[in-house]
Amino acid sequence: MDPVSALVTLTNFVLIPGFAYGSQLALGALGITLIYSILRFSHFAHGDVMAFGTMVVIFTTWGFQAIGITGGGVIPTALLAIPVGIAVMIVYLLVADRLVYRFFRQVKAKPLTFVMASLGVMFVTNGLTRLFIGTSERRFEDGERFIFSVRDFREWTGLAEGLALRSSQAITIVTALLVMAALFWFLTRTKSGKSMRAYSDNEDLALLSGINPERVVTMTWMIVAGLVVIAGTLYGLDKGFRPINYFQLLLPMFAAAIVGGLGSPIGAIVGGFVVAFSEMGITYAWRRFFTHLMPEDMAPDSMLQLLPVDYKFAVTFAILVIVLIFRPTGIFRGKSI
């Protein structure tokens, strides 16, 4: 038995990828829960908006590389392009709000009307993304690929099992933590953040207190723009960019927001990691891990994989259904759907 090698295997194939993927889902789910709690509708265009913002970052990255502006070491050029992507996304979301959502707010339309409107925005955004960048996969990472590789780890430790930490994974985890900390500081320590929370808790009382609803809406879209561009860029650096992949992310992000509790930022973060590790754990082949923990004559013969990787979204859907049936308010008792 070799528990150290088992831990290394678990870290390499489940823990590190799970934390990176969970961080990406958490950032996306934060945007969904902000829109739901403040603007009071489910934003079904979220995945395609994320793809559009990432596309802008990719084009900016290529432009920077063409004129000689690049990152250094493990820092990819795409991180330098994120502010441009956020600026464009702020404009895009504010224009979409003025042209589509604002009218329905003024007439106090039902939430289902907003959902249908967001589907229209989704189709338009998806079409624009496919028109400008196409449907094939795009890789836009540069710089050093690994913080340390499997070979480096084996040389350092002398272990048979290897462990690698990709630059995209480390950048994702660190960036996500910084963004989450900055968001919580904004919501709890600034006047604008407190006005957003007040508007979310009680719209009528917030209006009587002199809070400008249009200003709250504008700030919400600006924060969401930052979250979707950062999350989309980190996901693209880690797994590559294809528009269809971002559409498929819509289910895990919504599941993360609902599992944690819609309207709860902490819940969105926790839900992101719950969904990520559930997908990783159920679709991972555990044979190698348990082989290190059991005597040689008792080593498992099967792959010990509950579901193939192709069924990871089925895991997310199952989690979503279970939560909606038994605890529709989520872990942190957010707003039920």
Rank of each mutant, 00 (worst) to 15 (best):
L7N: 00
L7S: 03
V8I: 10
V8K: 03
T9Q: 13
P17N: 09
F19Y: 04
A26L: 04
G28K: 05
A29K: 03
G31Q: 06
L34S: 02
Y36R: 09
Y36K: 07
I38L: 08
R40G: 09
R40H: 15
H43D: 15
A45Y: 02
V49E: 02
I58P: 05
I58Y: 13
I67P: 10
G68N: 05
T70R: 07
I82D: 03
V84T: 14
M89Q: 11
M89K: 04
M89H: 11
V95H: 10
K108D: 14
K110W: 06
T113D: 07
V121K: 04
V121R: 01
T125M: 11
G127E: 06
L128G: 03
R130N: 15
E137S: 15
E137D: 15
E137H: 12
R139N: 14
D142K: 01
E144C: 02
I147G: 01
D152A: 12
R154Y: 08
T157F: 10
G162R: 02
L165S: 00
S167E: 02
Q169T: 01
T172C: 06
A181W: 13
A181V: 13
L183D: 05
N202Q: 12
L205D: 06
L205H: 03
S209T: 10
I211G: 00
M219Q: 14
V224L: 10
A231G: 09
A231F: 12
G232K: 04
L234V: 11
D238K: 08
N245P: 01
Q248N: 15
L249T: 10
A255Q: 04
I258K: 10
G263S: 03
S264W: 10
I269H: 02
V270A: 11
G271R: 02
A276M: 07
F277P: 08
E279P: 15
W286F: 06
F290E: 08
H292P: 13
H292M: 09
L293W: 04
E296I: 14
P300E: 02
S302F: 12
S302G: 13
L304A: 06
A314H: 05
T316C: 12
A318N: 14
L324P: 01
L324F: 05
I325R: 12
F326Q: 05
F326G: 11
P328G: 07
